[in-house]
Amino acid sequence: MKNVLLAVLSFLLLLSCGNDDADLYEEINEQLELNVPANFPPMAQDISYNYPTQKGFELGRKLFYDGRLSADNAISCSFCHEQATAFTHHGHQLSHGINNLEGIRNAPAVQNMAFQSEYFYDGASNSIEMLSIAPIHNPVEMNETLEGIVAKLKQDKEYVRLFKQAFEDQQVSSGNVLKALAQFMTMIVSANSRYDKYVRNEGGVFSQQELLGMQLFQQKCASCHKTDLFTDSAFRNNGLPPNPNLNDKGREVVTGFETDRYKFKVPSLRNVALTAPYMHDGRFGSLESVLNHYSNGVRQNETLDPILNQNGTLGLSITQEEKDAIIAFLKTLTDEEYINNPLFYYKT
């Protein structure tokens, strides 16, 4: 429908303005194909308002990799979200942004975003289109404004052309910056790990240990790390003692409810072998330490998730052999195609 309209429109424009502008209309913007992987739940975001197109996606990708989205023109989204580590900030417990300032949280993986209903550890956003507002304005991340970005991009002929191609209203505008980034994030889907190929019967093979790990995971972990997204997008307290230097109250920061104190969004575990360090403040350097936390480190707290407090016994009982098996299983969630997909990379 849209394509037909665009075609008609460009035809009319061609008719009306003669030949001087013809190069602007040479390309027709195609909608991209977006298949929900067979083992995934349905999308949580309604993307029909901003359905990804070829040009919109490409523009979003360029923006994601462009430092001009920050006040000093140096910090792009990709600075903290690197493809090689499933779009996390490798080697940083707490992300570093503009002027080398340190934030209070660890950058999580950016993947399968349209399948999630809440974003950030505290749920500061629930819209794939609006979420970019948070890092852009954060004084220790990019410290820019949408208006500031638009003013910079309007100076750049290339961007003016790309926005024109990507959007019906052809404008370089705050709204279209957000939409383009959302289209990029909608398209970056990780669903081709060995685990996926195993559950979809596409030739993925599991060892005995990995199989055991999967069973244990389903018993002990999948009540929170749910579905093949490995998150239920809920906010829970998994028993980490609060870090006194940060005093991060988690979900309470957004809601203002004390009952939400120290609850954090359950993160997806896809590509988890690549995304160290772990937890909202990056306190654990390895998966071994994470498993040790669940078996020995869970602390009582008013908001501790009841799943981790069974009749006064804190944490989960997991033997060393079981820990090894669970970790072997978690490693099958690494998706080489995702981290190497050239479509998700833009050379600046």
């Binding site: 289109e129 638009v150 505008s173």
Partner: peptide
């Protein structure tokens, strides 16, 4: 909110 900035009018600015 959930539609974000889909509306033509750039209300955010």
């Amino acid at each position: 909110y959930l539609q974000g900035e889909t509306a033509q009018q750039s209300f955010w600015d």
